[in-house]
Each structure stands twice: as structure tokens, then as C-alpha cells.
Design a protein around this nucleic acid. Structure first.
Lengths: 343, 343
DNA sequence: CGCGAAACTTTACGCGCGAAAAGAATTTGA
DNA sequence: TCAAATTCTTTTCGCGCGTAAAGTTTCGCG
């Protein structure tokens, strides 16, 4: 590696013996130049360690390779995990992802979208806050920037949606629980932040009716994204009051279940499917920590792999289609039931 | 808001009645222009909604307002939480933070540093992987880019370090545990990823000796960042073998403790300080989930607020000092003991 | 009122690259 | 072997802003 400092593409063109416009083409897409030329460029690249100035590149390029990834709450390991996978796949596809978290606040979500515009991203993968989101702002954003929604759908917004099939989550857990014991009640927040929660409740009602069981929805109070705390506080109140209506509880999501389990432990209710267990608890998401709850949590797992793969592939297709799809597509992936000790 | 589209600073200068160089100064630092001028600019900004092109700005500016935040593993809620706070404070100070996660891999950490160079950041807040880090690469990076290390120290690297005082974590927990019962053994990974773990072990040995107790270190096998799993598997082997040497366990960190608690639950060992409890378990970090373990975890809490505030302030001072400090400073913040049910 | 300092305007150039057009060189295929 | 197709080079322009220098206006203050 020669340590002659290359200041710009002009100088690199000189030492590489290649014209600058050809280099420009190469950096835009290495496949676009003849193999013999590519070899010469890459040989020179080995020697001189030149990298194009990213600001100058993006200033004039119509299409950057920037990609924004926005999640509603990065402190939730579920989103950290899905964001990690999506980020990874974006890099593999040659994009430059930047990760943002709305931290549960609509104002911040709007700020992120605004600063994202100035990054001129080729596309954006957006998991909106849900109910709290400023729908008008998101619509305006999606009108300007090619956007694929994931995890949490907003009807008609964005060019596509990729997420999980909430019905399958509920169908599988309810089916399992009813086959192996009492039919479950449904434990959720009164005003869920996320539209998936509403879909899950609806699915619960439908599945229970279909199976000929009376649905029972148990709602707890609480706002925001501190689900564990809300689940814990709500469960304590219920346990200290009349208790749950049945001995089997299906939680709307794992984080609520984590709170519920801690409340059960605190009050001495034994959870599980064995002898001497007072309650069975199951849930949905396969949160990274659900393997370490006490007892470990029976849950319906997201297909993390498929969702992240499909979301990034959809975004790539969208970008390569010029930023618009003819019709808005929705891809939903089924859950996989994970049997553990809690039910 | 007039919807005449302003294309660049030139056009905005025209409609605002301000010369372009003055606008340039204003966007660089609003305080640098006369108040009356600032008002006129801001009035025009209200009307025309112009934002400078970020790429053109950064291309020529010697000092951008970009700031990089790098954490080793974002799927760990501890880092998600500290990153969130640091990000927030950077924004408040007028910087443009970008968040990166090394996802536990040194190769990725190097990639991040490389792509960070091209962002010409004014400064970087880096929590390195630790043992796995490529020290030479990090040193080279810190030589080029003003960097403040946080959470995990690398001696002599970076302009400053901000983190927690591991000794105080250990001193407080050991002191409490010995005052209220048997002196603890120390539960940790054999080859910890993080240098804090080593400092904590050393502190444990020292504190125990000082108090006249025989230190007992219990090491479990395992590599990587899946601490809960490592703690769980290790604890199961110990419980199924001879058991722990004493009835009180101090875990090197909360994530290990979460695994340990799940193992205890699985094997029917009751954890806590009350009657009928077989083990007491305490730990360090005050991980966001440690309130919801079964039982809830007694732990030494990071001073999240002070660490994040100090780290960002140090970075700002560093940037304002031209990127170099005279001497490398280290700021350590003491832990706060959080008593819960596990010990 | 007048003076100097501070702030502003005008003018001009440069940053590093994208992009387009026209011509030269190379490759391809029959 | 030769023309068409492809690829590369040369030339030129522009993007939106930073920055510097020189000249002009405004401000503070005695």
C-alpha cells in the first residue's frame, strides 16, 4: 500500500490509469464496467486505498444508496433484534442503512422522518409507532420517499407492508391451550399502542367463537411502552382482586407476559402445565428474553428471518422499480408455536 | 407558509433579503449573527421552509456537527437505554448523532469505524467491544477522529473515558450481602468479553480480603454476548453438580443473573432473603429487566443519567477544544444499590 | 456628531463528484 | 476481416454550499 495520499477521484484516476468518468461508473456499480477494467481499478484500489467522498457523491446523485430503518422503540429487544437482522441484510445488498428509534414518541418519529428526507434515502423501512403515529405526516413522507412499512401496518400507507400474521399467532396458541386444558382468557392493555394488539384481540374473539368457547378479555390500564410494568401492575391488581376468570391466560405480547409472570411469582401463584400449577400462561412474539422467564414462556414466535428477509427484499424491489409499486402488497408470515414451561 | 419552492441558499437569500454568506454563518451558528438579522432570517424560515442541503454543507465544512455513537451490542437493553439517553443529549446540544451497533463482532466494529471516518464526524462516542476489539484499529481511528470512550475502557486510547466505577458496584453489593448474611461467591464467565468484568472480579477479591472473608470465584464456560444463556447453562451444571460453595451469589452482571435465576427456578431453588430461601442472588448493572425477574433482582445500578450526561458533555468539550485534550481524563460514577427481593 | 468596531454585502473561487455529449478505442460476431 | 456494438476517454458543465477578501453599512459609545 503506497502511502501517497489520494485526495480525490481525479488523482486516483491518474494513478490508476483510468478516466474519472469510468471510475465514477465503477463506484456507482462495479458490474457496469468491463471485467478487465474492473480488475485494474481494484488493483489500484488495493495499492492506494482511496474512497470516494460520500458527501460529494450524494450531493448530485439522483439515487443514493442510503436506506433508513426506523423502529418505534429500540430498547425493546424485539425491535433491536429485528433491526439488527434488517440492517445486516441491507448491508449485504450494498445499501448504507442508518438506524433510528422513535423511542415511543410521535414527535420524535416525525423528526426522524424529517431528517431522513435530507438524507435523500433510496428507500426507508419504517415500523411506525402505531396508534400514536401522526398519520398525516407519515403519509406525506411516504408520498415523497419510497417506503416499506414493517411490523405495524397502517392501511393504505407506504408502498408495501411486511409483518406477521397475527391471526396465526392467536390461532396456534388458542388451539394449543384449548387442546391441553381450559380455554384461555386474553390479557391485554386497554389502549394498546400497536395495531397488532387489536388484530390479536379480534382474532382471539373469532377463534374462541369458532371453537365454541366463551371469550373473556381482561384489560389492564396503562399508557406507553413500559409493557412489563403495565402487565405486572395490572396482574397484581387482578390477582389481589377476584383473580383471573379462568386458569389459562393468553397475553397479547411477551412483554406483558413478563410482567404478568413476575406478578404471579410475587404473589406465589405457580405457573405452568404441571401438577400444582395454579395458572397457565402463554403469549406471543418470542421475545429474546422469553426463554429466561420463570417459568420459561410458551409463546408464538415471529418468523424473524422471513420478516427481515422479505422486508429488505421488498425494499430492494421497490427501489429497483423506481420507487413505486403498482399495487400495495402485504406479506404476512405465520407464527411458529414454541412450547416451553409456562403452558 | 408560501409554497414557492426554495431550491438553494441563493434563492432563500433572495426572498429573505439577506446575503448568502450571512445565511451560511447563521446556519453554522445562529448566535454568530446580530439578533435583528437572526429574527429576519427566522421569520423567512417560517415562511419558506428552507433547509440547507446537508451533503453540500458537510462537503466543505472543516467541522461537521455529525456525531457517531457506537455500542457493542444494541440488543442488550442496557446499551439500548444508555444509547437512547446519549442520543437525546447530543440532539439537545445541536449535534446530529448516528447510532451504530457492533453486534458483538470485531469485524463489524472495524467496519463501523471505517464508515464513520467518511462521515467526517466532529466526534465519536465509542463503547468498544472490549477484549474482542481490534485495539490497533481503534487506536488508529482515535488518532484521526476525536473520540470519547464510554462504558468500557481501553487504557490510553481515546481522549477521555466516561464510565462506571466498578469498584463501587462491588463494594456496595458485597458490603450489603455480608452485613445481612453469608459472604457471597462471585459468579462470572471464564473469559468475559468486557473489561468491566475483570475489574469487578479484582474488586471482589480485594473487598472480600479487606473484610476478612475468603473469596470464591465461580466461573462458567461460554463465549459471546448471549449472557443469559451462558448464565443459565452454567448455573444448571453447578446446581446439578455440587451446588454453589455458599448460599449467596454475586453475579458479575445482571444478564448472567437473569440466566442464573431462571436456572434456580427450573431446579426449584427458592431465591431471596426470606424464610425458606435456599439462595441469595445479587448482581450489577440495574438492567432494565431486573425489576421483572423472579424474584426481582437486588443489584447495583449504573448512574445512567450521570454517565450519559458526562459522556456527551466531555465530547462537546473535546470538540470545542479542537479535538484534543491535554491529558486523558477518566470519569467514573459510583453505583447506587437497589434492594429488591433476590437478596 | 464622529469615530472605530462589528456586522453585513458583493464578488469570486473552490470542493469532489455526477452527468451528458462527442469522439476514440476495443470487443464482438458473422 | 470488417462493420456494428460496446466500452472507454476527453471535455465541459453544474450541484449547493464553504470560505476568503474587499468594500459598505450599521452600531455602540464618548
Amino acid at each position: 500500500m503506497d502511502d501517497i495520499k489520494i485526495r480525490n477521484m481525479e488523482e486516483f484516476a491518474a494513478v490508476a490509469g483510468i478516466s474519472r468518468p469510468t471510475l465514477s461508473k465503477y463506484f456507482h456499480d462495479p458490474q457496469s464496467v468491463r471485467p478487465s477494467t474492473r480488475e485494474r481499478i481494484e488493483a489500484a484500489l488495493e495499492q492506494y486505498d482511496y474512497r470516494p467522498n460520500i458527501f460529494a457523491m450524494n450531493q448530485n446523485r439522483k439515487l443514493t444508496r442510503n436506506v433508513g430503518i426506523v423502529v418505534p422503540y429500540l430498547a425493546d429487544p424485539f425491535f433491536a433484534e429485528i433491526a439488527r437482522r434488517i440492517e445486516q441484510r441491507c448491508i449485504e445488498m450494498g445499501y448504507r442503512p442508518t438506524l433510528f428509534s422513535s423511542h415511543g414518541e410521535a414527535a420524535l418519529e416525525n423528526d426522524i422522518l424529517e431528517s431522513l428526507r435530507s438524507l435523500k434515502p433510496a428507500g426507508v423501512l419504517l415500523a411506525p409507532l402505531g396508534r400514536a403515529s401522526d398519520r398525516a405526516e407519515i403519509e406525506k413522507f411516504c408520498a415523497d420517499v419510497p417506503t416499506v412499512l414493517f411490523d405495524s401496518n397502517i392501511e393504505g400507507v407506504g408502498e408495501a407492508f411486511v409483518g406477521s400474521d397475527n391471526f396465526s399467532f392467536v390461532a396456534q396458541t388458542v388451539d394449543y391451550l384449548t387442546r391441553t386444558g381450559e380455554a384461555p382468557c386474553f390479557f391485554e392493555m386497554r389502549t394498546p399502542a400497536n395495531p397488532n394488539a387489536n388484530k390479536r384481540r379480534t382474532a382471539y374473539l373469532e377463534v374462541m367463537q369458532r371453537l365454541g368457547h366463551e371469550p373473556r378479555v381482561v384489560k389492564v390500564e396503562g399508557e406507553g411502552w413500559a409493557f412489563e410494568e403495565i402487565g405486572q401492575a395490572g396482574a397484581l391488581r387482578i390477582l389481589d382482586g377476584g383473580g383471573f376468570p379462568v386458569n389459562t391466560i393468553l397475553c397479547s405480547n411477551d412483554r406483558l407476559a413478563i410482567g404478568l409472570l413476575s406478578a404471579c411469582y410475587e404473589r406465589g401463584y405457580r405457573v405452568g402445565r404441571g401438577e400444582g400449577c395454579a395458572l397457565r400462561v402463554a403469549s406471543m412474539d418470542d421475545h429474546p428474553f422469553s426463554r429466561f422467564t420463570c417459568p420459561s414462556l410458551t409463546t408464538a414466535a415471529h418468523d424473524y428471518d422471513s420478516v427481515s428477509e422479505s422486508a429488505t427484499r421488498t425494499l430492494r424491489d421497490l427501489i429497483e422499480s423506481g420507487g413505486r409499486f403498482e399495487g400495495r402488497t402485504e406479506a404476512l408470515f405465520a407464527a411458529k408455536l414454541v412450547l416451553r414451561a409456562s403452558a
